[in-house]
C-alpha cells in the first residue's frame, strides 16, 4: 500500500468508527416505531378499536387527528409473520388469498394513513407465505 492510500484508509476508518455505531444505535432504537411524538399524541382521538380479529394475530386502532385518520396495527409478539402487510377490502377473505378489491395500506408497526372509508375489512397478509394471516371488520363514521 502506498503512503497516501494508507493515510486515506486510516481517515476512512476514523470516520466509519463514528458513523457505523451511530447508524447501528439509530436502527436499533427506532424499531417498533411509536407513531406520534408526545405533543402530537394528545391531539389524536381514538375513533375505532379493531376487534374481533379472527385469530388474534394482531391488535389495532383507528385514530383521528387534525391532519386525517390513521391506522395503527401491532402484531402479536407470539405470531411470527414473515414480511407482513396490511390490506383493506370491502369483503372478508374467504380463503388464504386476498379478495379481488384488496388494496395495500402499509406495514404493521408503522403509522398508516387511513382512507376515507366507513366500513370494510382490514387484512394482515404475509407476503413471504402469500397467505392471509388474520383479518378484522371495521366501522367508522365518515369525516
Amino acid at each position: 500500500m502506498i503512503r497516501t492510500h494508507r493515510r486515506r484508509h486510516l481517515s476512512f476508518f476514523v470516520v466509519l468508527a463514528v458513523l457505523v455505531p451511530v447508524v447501528f444505535t439509530w436502527s436499533i432504537t427506532r424499531r417498533q416505531v411509536v407513531p406520534f411524538a408526545e405533543n402530537e399524541k394528545s391531539a389524536t382521538r381514538l375513533i375505532a378499536k379493531l376487534d374481533p380479529w379472527q385469530k388474534k394475530a394482531a391488535t389495532g386502532e383507528i385514530l383521528e387527528s387534525d391532519t386525517g385518520r390513521f391506522l395503527q396495527i401491532v402484531l402479536n409478539p407470539d405470531s411470527r409473520i414473515a414480511d407482513p402487510l396490511v390490506y383493506i377490502s370491502s369483503q372478508a377473505p374467504n380463503s388464504q388469498a386476498l379478495p379481488n378489491d384488496a388494496r395495500l395500506l402499509g406495514i404493521p408497526g408503522t403509522l398508516i394513513t387511513f382512507p376515507d372509508l366507513s366500513s370494510g375489512y382490514l387484512i394482515v397478509y404475509s407476503l413471504a407465505h402469500e397467505q392471509v394471516i388474520d383479518f378484522v371488520p371495521f366501522e367508522v363514521k365518515q369525516l
Binding site: M1, L10, L16, A17
Partner: peptide
C-alpha cells in the same frame, strides 16, 4: 462491525 473497525484502526495506527 466492532471487530472490523478495531482491527483497521489498530493496523492503521501502527502503519502511521
Amino acid at each position: 462491525f466492532s471487530l472490523i473497525l478495531t482491527l483497521h484502526l489498530i493496523a492503521g495506527w501502527r502503519e502511521r
